[in-house]
């Protein structure tokens, strides 16, 4: 049971990679990238979790509970990573919108004026 979050995270990453490799629509590619990112965030949070853990807030925490606090660093990493993910997803989607305006399609096989 302890490894369950890691299995889920790995599945999410693999699903995302599958989407990036085999889906044809640019919007779906963005969703794939988002899936990988979710998987990685889950992985990071799961890394810092302790069984029956409490929030890592030191103020007024009884000393007996100190070793049951979840690790704060992965949570900080995840928060940063979510913010970065939001920025990249927004940027990718806005590029996709402008590509749709110029090319009239979002099929990845047809958005290939830059080749050779």
């Amino acid at each position: 049971m302890g490894n369950f979050p890691f299995v889920v995270a790995m599945l999410l990453v693999i699903l995302g990679l599958y989407t990036l490799l085999f889906k044809r629509n640019l919007i779906k590619l963005v969703i794939g990238a988002s899936l990988i990112e979710t998987g990685v965030n889950l992985f990071l949070v799961a890394l810092g979790y302790r069984t029956a853990g409490i929030a890592p807030i030191y103020t007024y925490a009884p000393p007996a509970l100190a070793d049951r606090m979840v690790l704060p660093t992965p949570q900080a990493l995840t928060l940063t990573s979510i913010v970065i993910g939001l920025a990249t997803t927004a940027l990718l989607l806005s590029f996709a919108v402008v590509i749709h305006r110029h090319y009239g399609t979002l099929d990845v096989r047809e958005v290939k004026e830059l080749k050779g």
Partner: peptide, 27 residues
């Protein structure tokens, strides 16, 4: 310029994937 958007999308998509690889390695 439509092509610049294509280039930007491709670059951003690859940057995102490689950035996530770095994050997994960090984890």
């Amino acid at each position: 310029r439509g092509r610049s958007q294509e280039a930007a999308f491709k670059t951003m998509a690859l940057y995102t994937l490689s950035g996530l690889f770095v994050l997994i390695a960090l984890g």
